[in-house]
């Protein structure tokens, strides 16, 4: 009798805890680049459905992916693709990770508006951040040492610059800032500075920082990150997709996850993406999303 009572108590506790956990709010965590965008999407969604609660927080893409693997959040924001190692860890933990592109981002290289350098190649930007080019005069600017501003290593933007532009290690002289807004603030007053930010942040920064036009190589055409068409058709060289990583099983099991994703990818959601200074899904990233067979 005693054993039966204990077993029933454990089972009741088990069921109760499971129900309680399933009723919690939707948690979205990860990329700092995506925080403002997903926050705006969440606010619009909550306006439409006032009974829903979504919390959005940053910490970096790696942190977000680790959180979803450890079931600390429902959706991970990531400004880079998920790594094989992370897919393995997720599967081992019983998750079926699905990477859904929700927007396109162009990374803008920015300087102080009083800096006369307005054009750079990807190679030059890479050499500047690797510490091989140390003075603005080496790229047609004034005789002033270059001050490097970048992100902290747990940021997806940090990895994106490292992998796509620098193709090696950052200079140890680079100042690691705790967020894009700190880079923008630093560049407003530092005429010798250079930084990188998602194009979404250019709008908020107004005329206090200016983006540099970028060419793939010397002798090729330079493109402006603020030109939508050049970004969408892939002319502007520093572009990437912004992803959300979810447990595939949760899309069918947890309708909160499914409905929010559906909203983000809807016409209304994609309008917010544009309003926030990013680009709506198009080209290869739209194809990638369609191939996932989400049904929305």
């Amino acid at each position: 009798m005693k054993v039966k009572t204990i077993i029933s108590l454990i089972l009741t506790l088990f069921a109760g805890v499971t129900i309680l956990q399933s009723q919690q709010m939707l948690k979205v965590k990860g990329s700092d680049t995506m925080v403002n965008l997903v926050q705006a999407l969440a606010e619009s969604y909550m306006e439409k459905y006032p009974e829903k609660v979504i919390s959005v927080s940053g910490g970096g893409s790696g942190t977000g992916i680790a959180s979803i693997i450890n079931r600390q959040c429902d959706i991970a924001n990531s400004s880079r693709e998920i790594k094989t190692k992370e897919v393995f860890q997720a599967k081992q933990n019983g998750l079926d990770p699905l990477q859904i592109p929700i927007a396109i981002d162009a990374l803008a290289i920015v300087v102080n508006p009083n800096n006369p350098v307005k054009k750079l190649t990807v190679e030059e930007v890479g050499a500047i951040y690797a510490g091989k080019i140390k003075n603005w005069k080496e790229v047609g600017g004034p005789n002033k040492p270059i001050t490097l501003y970048g992100r902290q290593p747990n940021s997806g933007t940090y990895d994106f610059m490292k992998d796509v532009v620098i193709k090696g290690d950052y200079s140890k002289e680079m100042r690691e800032m705790n967020g894009t807004s700190q880079i923008v603030e630093a560049l407003k007053t530092d005429i010798s500075g250079i930084g990188y930010v998602g194009v979404g942040y250019l709008r908020d920064a107004g005329n206090e920082i200016s983006p540099v036009e970028i060419a793939r190589k010397k002798g090729e055409k330079y493109y402006d990150p603020l030109n939508v068409q050049d970004v969408l058709n892939g002319n502007y060289p520093i572009t990437r997709a912004l992803y959300q990583i979810v447990d595939k099983k949760q899309i069918n099991k947890n309708k909160e996850v499914k409905n929010f994703l559906k909203f983000e990818l809807s016409e209304d959601g994609q309008k917010i993406v544009e309003e926030m200074g990013f680009y709506r899904l198009a080209g290869k990233y739209l194809e990638m999303k369609n191939k996932l067979g989400l049904g929305f």
Binding site: T84, V87, F88, A90, K91, P97
Partner: peptide, 9 residues
């Protein structure tokens, strides 16, 4: 290392 698609290590 890991197998493609995280199917093992």
């Amino acid at each position: 290392g890991y197998l493609p698609d995280g199917l093992g290590d």
